[in-house]
């Protein structure tokens, strides 16, 4: 059979695997909802959780579709569709694919349009195996790890609560720091000149950013944060309780929309 990166059989194989992932998601959803009913949890709360999670997911999922499109230029559509529906992320998938191509003495850009089946499976193996650790490690450690945490909680409930909050804050702090990573362009001329390697094509070009461009993510973050504070006021002062369920996706989308004129203004 003649190979092509967009051969229908590849879509069939990928479709089967993604259907299985969908099956796992539906299985855990049904299992959790059943448990919520069995333990007499407030089902209104569960319905709100479902609706909020679905609405919240739309914008990030569209961003993932953009990633599929950019990777499809060299790898076809089927493989990026699989990789980004299971485990993947743009930064990882592009690096893994580029490293596999490099291991074969070529680049993704050179392979685009004339990739052989051998090159395709070589890339697919590297992309799959390199990111697989979480899938098998969770079954190995999760049960013991969680029971250890439970014992720990029984010993000191207050510290256990603080520890849980520390985990969340630790993650948030890294992302807050990341938002400021290009602020140094304000005073550092060298920080404005960036060698950008297109991870998909492997082509490197020099991009010169404006001094104020590093402020764009900071302003976007501030707008989203202020928007969230306003939502808090609406909930607490005007008793608009329904806002609570939609505050995060609303503020995130407002922040993203504000990025359009801010980027045009600051670069």
């Amino acid at each position: 059979m003649e190979f092509s990166v967009n051969h229908p059989i590849l879509f069939l194989l990928v479709g089967i695997i993604i259907a299985a992932v969908l099956g796992q998601s539906i299985y855990f959803l049904v299992k959790s909802v059943r448990r919520a009913k069995a333990t007499n949890m407030d089902m209104t709360k569960i319905k709100k959780t479902i609706i909020t999670a679905a609405i919240f997911t739309v914008a990030p999922a569209i961003a993932i579709v953009i990633t599929v499109i950019s990777l499809s230029q060299s790898l076809g559509i089927a493989l990026p569709w699989l990789r980004l529906s299971v485990v993947g992320s743009l930064s990882y998938e592009a690096i893994a694919a580029a490293n596999a191509a490099s291991g074969m003495g070529t680049t993704l850009a050179a392979l685009a349009g004339n990739m052989t089946a051998s090159q395709y499976v070589t890339i697919a193996i590297v992309m799959t195996v390199s990111i697989m650790v979480g899938i098998w490690l969770v079954p190995v450690v999760a049960k013991k790890y969680q029971s250890g945490l439970m014992k720990f909680e029984n010993k000191d409930k207050k510290w256990s609560d603080i520890l849980q909050n520390s985990l969340f804050i630790g993650m948030i702090s890294a992302f807050v720091g990341f938002v400021f990573c290009d602020v140094s362009r304000l005073w550092s001329e060298s920080a404005r000149i960036v060698e950008v390697e297109d991870k998909v094509t492997g082509v490197t070009e020099t991009v010169t950013y404006s001094a104020t461009s590093g402020l764009v993510p900071v302003i976007v973050m501030a707008v989203a944060a202020i928007c969230m504070c306003l939502c808090g006021l609406l909930i607490n002062k005007l008793k608009w309780k329904w806002v609570n369920d939609y505050a995060l996706p609303i503020c995130m989308v407002i922040g993203m929309l504000v990025a359009i004129p801010i980027t045009a203004w600051l670069g």
Binding site: A59, P60, I62, A63, I66, I172, F175, V176, F178, V179, V216, P217, V218, V220, M221, A222, V223, A224, A225, C227, M228, A247, L248, C251, M252, V253, I254, G255, M256, L257, A259, I260, I262, T263, A264
Partner: peptide, 14 residues
């Protein structure tokens, strides 16, 4: 630019 700034918007609100 909107999709480029998704993470700052998300983590600002959250």
């Amino acid at each position: 630019p909107a999709f480029d700034q998704m993470l700052p918007a998300l983590f600002g609100a959250l």
